[in-house]
């Protein structure tokens, strides 16, 4: 199988207080460290395991600025054969624009693939729709939230999709197709610094996004960035044991974990 995995470099924001700049025009991400989007990490691992078992090769593609090369090196260290950077300085907030760009690139460069993998979503924008849009544009089948690949056949895959509440559905998907890979589908291998250094010696190809700009436009626009409503520590629930018990169960119901 030839598998193309889309990988994104994202800022690490856990436990950081993010600052919105200039009256809501942008979010300050300057000092944050970056890494490969966690879901894409599972995607690369799954693809590498599939080709390790059944033959073929994995190509990692990143859309972003020159720094995004970092995730390609990591993907290669994990076992990808190629790394392609679709280079653009512009931040494309609308996944429609990113999917169109990716679609143009795959077609124009005649990149061969049996399957395209993405992570279920990116840690930063959490849109969870790039893969689906891309599949529709390429007119090939799509399965999201894939938590298991049960069989790999010549012309199709049988995969399990994660639904809600511990339920999964098993579906048959014809090849070529797009899968969005859920975290937990595997345990991604550790990539050592030595491994990344070795991977740096493998050439990564850079493609200018401006060469694939046909119809790359945003259908939605960010008008403003805003903070969520302020939360000051824990909201303390007071009262006698009956009241507290009632309020607690109320919260559990509201959160949808208790009927």
């Amino acid at each position: 199988m030839e598998i193309v995995v889309f990988t994104k470099r994202v800022p690490v924001t856990q436990e950081e207080e993010l600052r919105i700049l200039e009256d809501g025009k942008a979010v300050d991400l300057r000092k944050l460290p970056h890494r490969m989007n966690d879901w894409d990490n599972y995607g690369v691992e799954e693809a590498v395991r599939m080709v390790e078992k059944g033959g073929g090769g994995v190509t990692s593609v990143a859309i972003g600025d020159a720094e995004a090369d970092e995730v390609l090196r990591r993907a290669i260290a994990m076992g990808a054969r190629d790394g392609f950077l679709l280079e653009t300085e512009e931040v494309l907030h609308d996944p429609f624009a990113r999917a169109t760009l990716a679609c143009n690139f795959l077609k124009k460069e005649k990149i061969p693939f049996d399957a395209l993998f993405t992570g279920v979503q990116a840690e930063d924008d959490q849109f969870a729709c790039f893969g689906g849009m891309l599949a529709a544009m390429l007119k090939i089948p799509y399965a999201a939230q894939v938590i298991g690949v049960d069989s790999v056949e010549k012309d199709h895959l049988v995969v399990r999709r994660e639904l809600e509440g511990g339920l999964q559905e098993r579906v048959k998907v014809s090849l070529p197709c797009v899968l969005s890979v859920q975290s937990g589908i595997n345990e991604p291998r550790y990539v050592s610094i030595m491994g990344v250094r070795k991977a740096s010696k493998v050439e990564r190809k850079v493609f200018k996004a401006s060469n694939y700009a046909d119809n790359v436009k945003s259908l939605i626009e960010v008008t403003k960035w805003a903070y969520p409503p302020k939360k000051e520590g824990a909201a303390m629930i007071a009262g006698d044991v009956n009241e507290v018990c009632g309020k607690l169960l109320g919260i559990l119901k509201e959160k949808g974990v208790y009927q």
């Binding site: 609308d94 996944p95 429609f96 999917a99 969870a128 729709c129 790039f130 893969g131 689906g132 849009m133 891309l134 599949a135 529709a136 544009m137 799509y142 399965a143 999201a144 939230q145 999709r161 994660e162 639904l163 809600e164 969005s180 259908l219 939605i220």
Partner: peptide, 19 residues
């Protein structure tokens, strides 16, 4: 949800519609 987001993404891609 899993299926809601899946269908929405595919349909928006198909119709070239904002999502």
């Amino acid at each position: 949800s899993s299926s809601g987001a899946e269908c929405a993404a595919y349909a928006a891609g198909h119709f070239s519609a904002p999502l």
